[in-house]
Amino acid sequence: MASTETAAKDTARDLAGLEAGLDALDAVRVSRTPVREVLVRKVLPPVVAVVLVLVVWQILIWAKVTDDYKLPSPSLVWGEVTDAWAQGTLLGFIWTSVSRGLLGFLLALVIGTPLGLLVSRVRLVRAAIGPVLSGLQSLPSVAWVPPAVIWLGLNDRMMFAVILLGAVPSIANGLVSGVDQIPPLHLRAGRTLGATGLRGTWHIVLPASLPGYLAGLKQGWAFSWRSLMAAEIIASSPDLGVGLGQLLEQGRETSSMSMVFLAIILILTVGIAIDLLIFSPLERWVLRSRGLLVKN
């Protein structure tokens, strides 16, 4: 008896050792990139690109390719920035638009998410509004500005309506494609664990569709921002305050090309900054934590 016991213990120890060896051989090593490398690889290239654009722009000014009122020099536009900063209006312009854009986007999120879930999970709903929803994505949201003004008047509600019409379909469609891409194996594994109905949606479907959903959010933000700028340019009224779109329109009215340039640059910068600061890190974090981000 004693001998069989020690034998069993020996085989157990053998097995544990063998397993430890196999695990050590197979384990995936994850290392982080050092900060310097990140700076050189990720930050330097876009900075160089921006500097190059500025240089080309200045060369065009020196070469006098066109009249001053058509193409302001970089220093004139920079002067516009410092003026607005000195008057304390610069951040106001940006904030008016950004707060509107983000609020509209959050509204779109609240509406688009359940809508996307419904379309992806209920066959009848998908048959009914699925095609319309993806069709809406290809309709430029500027088209909604005239009817929105007529229905709602020149106010913030009209702005939000235009944002929603632009962003809700993107967000809903992103979620639908995220759900469609869930491997059936995960759904079946969820069911065998007892995750059915609402619990299945919460524990399996939503987290599994997160990559597609985030892509939809990213696009939804781009659409929100674009729709808002279209609305601000077309529908300006003193009650609405001065956002970036109105700034651009004011520049056109007063024939101040440097102001137009300032507005365009700010619109572009805000769009990129929100994407870089919020959506890209979120997306990368989700993909990396699932091992879907391949470093090369």
Binding site: E19, L22, D23, L25, D26, A27, V30, R290, G291
Partner: peptide
């Protein structure tokens, strides 16, 4: 994480 584990 799952992707950090070997097949076994």
């Amino acid at each position: 994480r799952v992707h950090e584990l070997s097949g076994g």
